[in-house]
Amino acid sequence: MAAVTSPESSQQARVYFQTPTGSTEETETPVRKQGRVTVKYDRKELRKRLNLEEWIIDQLTDLYDCEEEAIPELEIDVDELLDMENDVDRAARVKELLVDCYKPTEEFVAELLDRIRGMQKLSTPQKK
């Protein structure tokens, strides 16, 4: 089978598989099956990220004194925080997201910044 990339420019990369010429199905037109291209990431980094996200959810349920389903709509984007220049900017962004939390958030923010220190963004593939 030969892999041919789609000439269309779209948001997601697509790969089409065609039956090679010279096969026993020469009378039929080639069948195109659509597949998605995925990027491989370091499993250890993915595990760290998953553990961090679970910790964030646990902390938010404590801060908002509610169940996970009742946490207000907010998204703490770790990649966005990693893109920021320094911890002061990161802390300000997290505090901005937690503006409607009535409990003190300083300890949560400090622990979060400590946990993301040394993490890598997942939006770019890791090279071995």
Rank of each mutant, 00 (worst) to 15 (best):
residue 7 P to L: 06
residue 121 K to M: 08
residue 28 E to S: 12
residue 4 V to F: 06
residue 79 D to M: 01
residue 76 I to L: 12
residue 30 P to S: 13
residue 30 P to H: 08
residue 68 E to I: 13
residue 28 E to A: 12
residue 13 A to E: 11
residue 19 T to L: 03
residue 30 P to Y: 08
residue 111 E to D: 15
residue 120 Q to R: 15
residue 39 V to G: 02
residue 96 E to Y: 14
residue 74 L to E: 08
residue 81 L to R: 01
residue 40 K to W: 04
residue 6 S to T: 11
residue 29 T to S: 14
residue 60 L to W: 04
residue 118 G to A: 11
residue 77 D to N: 15
residue 127 K to E: 14
residue 109 V to A: 12
residue 69 E to D: 15
residue 38 T to P: 00
residue 67 E to N: 07
residue 17 F to A: 04
residue 26 E to W: 08
residue 3 A to E: 13
residue 44 K to C: 01
residue 42 D to I: 00
residue 52 L to K: 02
residue 97 L to C: 06
residue 10 S to N: 06
residue 95 K to C: 08
residue 30 P to C: 09
residue 35 G to N: 03
residue 34 Q to T: 14
residue 10 S to H: 05
residue 52 L to Y: 03
residue 109 V to K: 08
residue 70 A to L: 14
residue 31 V to W: 02
residue 7 P to V: 05
residue 16 Y to L: 09
residue 5 T to A: 02
residue 53 E to Y: 05
residue 73 E to Y: 07
residue 21 T to D: 05
residue 103 K to Y: 10
residue 121 K to T: 10
residue 85 E to F: 06
residue 89 D to N: 12
residue 108 F to R: 02
residue 71 I to W: 10
residue 85 E to R: 13
residue 35 G to L: 08
residue 69 E to G: 11
residue 59 Q to S: 14
residue 29 T to N: 12
residue 123 S to K: 12
residue 121 K to S: 11
residue 79 D to K: 00
residue 67 E to V: 04
residue 13 A to G: 05
residue 13 A to C: 06
residue 79 D to Y: 00
residue 98 L to G: 02
residue 47 R to H: 04
residue 34 Q to N: 13
residue 51 N to K: 10
residue 46 L to G: 02
residue 112 L to M: 07
residue 106 E to T: 15
residue 51 N to F: 06
residue 11 Q to G: 05
residue 120 Q to A: 15
residue 121 K to F: 01
residue 113 L to V: 04
residue 123 S to C: 09
residue 58 D to Q: 12
residue 107 E to W: 06
residue 99 V to I: 11
residue 85 E to P: 02
residue 71 I to Q: 08
residue 115 R to L: 08
residue 127 K to H: 09
residue 128 K to Y: 14
residue 117 R to M: 02
residue 35 G to T: 02
residue 68 E to M: 11
residue 36 R to H: 11
residue 79 D to N: 15
residue 1 M to N: 04
residue 21 T to R: 05
residue 18 Q to K: 07
residue 45 E to T: 05
residue 107 E to D: 15
residue 95 K to L: 07
residue 73 E to S: 10
residue 59 Q to G: 03
residue 126 Q to L: 11
residue 20 P to N: 04
residue 58 D to E: 14
residue 81 L to W: 01
residue 87 D to G: 14
residue 126 Q to I: 12
residue 10 S to E: 06
residue 105 T to P: 00
residue 20 P to S: 04
residue 113 L to Y: 01
residue 80 E to Q: 11
residue 85 E to Q: 12
residue 28 E to D: 12
residue 33 K to E: 02
residue 34 Q to D: 13
residue 99 V to F: 11
residue 90 R to F: 00
residue 116 I to E: 00
residue 107 E to G: 10
residue 100 D to T: 15
residue 12 Q to G: 05
residue 128 K to M: 13
residue 6 S to K: 03
residue 90 R to S: 00
residue 68 E to S: 13
residue 116 I to K: 00
residue 34 Q to S: 14
residue 115 R to A: 09
residue 78 V to F: 00
residue 82 L to E: 01
